[in-house]
Simulated assay, not measured.
Amino acid sequence: MAPATATAALQQTIVLDAQQIELSYGHKSVTPVLRDFSLQLAAGEVVAVLGPSGVGKSSLLRVLAGLQVPDKGTVHVKGEPLHGPHPRLGFVFQDPSLLPWLTLEENVGFGLDFTHQARISNAEKQERVAAAIAEVDLQRARTRYPSELSGGMAQRTALARSLARQPEILLLDEPFSALDEITRSEMQALLLQITSRHQTSAILVTHDIDEALLLADRILLIGLTPGRLIDEWRIDLPHPRDEVAAELTGVRVEIVQALRQARRGIPTPNHLHS
């Protein structure tokens, strides 16, 4: 278990605060995708978001990233209201979405000149790109084009593209779901290394319970009633967790049962499991 003092310190610094988010698509009278959803993310914390398909997990990430304006509610990043894409936020999609006419190196640097990014010199841009590529161990492939990359290399490139912006918060939408088991395991380990080394916070949307148990400090479950936080688990075990997987068996059973109830629309008590 993590020391109580470390957990307390982690909870003191909130880097992202979303309160009473509501979001609908189309006419506002339709059932909301998200309703009365609140979330606080602490510095250095990894939060995994689970839930049946269609409950609004990806929509939630878009709201938190400033890519989607909610109908109601507020999002604050380090105390500042979020009104659009923010330089402290990095988004990693399920599809790497690399530009085929750019090299790996150019893809990693793509976005550093966007209007919401702070202006930096060409020298600093090159330094950031080189550091991000080294972070994901792709130095030897920096001149390759996307068509020459494996699925794992493409996803590493997408992660490096976000890291080049030096975000304090990573938002990840099922980024490893299309990868084979070994590559996925390597990417999970890489994510933990990055968040630990830079004290980067992360919110990971995933359908994989085991991935959530291996990576997250907290696991949130969104239900179909509609798009509300209906359950939460805190995982106070050190990383890596492969060797303590047996200790997570009981939590896994609880999550599976809660997911089954959520799929059937059965209300689940909203409480924190430790």
Rank of each mutant, 00 (worst) to 15 (best):
M1S: 14
A2Y: 15
P3M: 14
P3L: 15
P3E: 15
T5Q: 15
A8R: 15
A9E: 15
A9P: 14
Q12H: 14
T13V: 15
L16R: 10
D17H: 14
Q19F: 13
I21T: 09
Y25M: 12
G26M: 08
H27F: 10
S29R: 00
S29E: 05
P32R: 07
D36V: 02
F37E: 05
S38I: 04
V47T: 12
A48F: 09
G51T: 12
G51A: 11
P52W: 04
S53D: 06
L61R: 06
L64D: 03
V69H: 11
V69S: 12
T74R: 13
V75H: 05
V75Y: 06
V77C: 08
G79I: 14
G79S: 14
E80A: 12
G84C: 08
P85V: 02
L89I: 02
V92D: 01
Q94Y: 01
P96C: 01
P96T: 07
W101L: 03
V108I: 04
G111C: 03
L112Q: 03
D113Y: 01
Q117E: 07
A118I: 09
R119G: 09
I120G: 06
S121T: 14
S121Q: 10
S121W: 12
A130K: 13
A131Q: 12
A132G: 02
E135Y: 09
D137H: 03
D137T: 02
R142E: 02
P146I: 05
E148Q: 09
S150V: 03
Q155V: 13
L159W: 14
L159A: 14
A160L: 14
A164H: 10
I169E: 05
I169H: 00
I169V: 07
L170Y: 01
L172N: 01
L172R: 06
E174A: 04
E174Q: 04
F176G: 05
S177Y: 04
L179E: 01
I182E: 06
R184Y: 02
A189T: 10
Q193L: 11
I194T: 04
T195V: 07
Q199K: 10
S201P: 00
I203H: 09
I203K: 07
L204H: 08
L204R: 08
L204M: 10
A212H: 07
A212W: 00
L213A: 00
L214F: 02
L214T: 05
D217K: 08
G223D: 15
G227Y: 10
L229Y: 13
I230H: 11
I230G: 10
D231M: 12
D236A: 12
P238G: 04
H239S: 03
H239I: 04
P240A: 01
P240V: 02
E243H: 09
V244H: 03
E247P: 04
L248G: 04
G250T: 03
R252H: 05
V253D: 09
V256T: 08
Q257T: 11
Q261D: 15
Q261N: 14
A262L: 13
I266V: 14
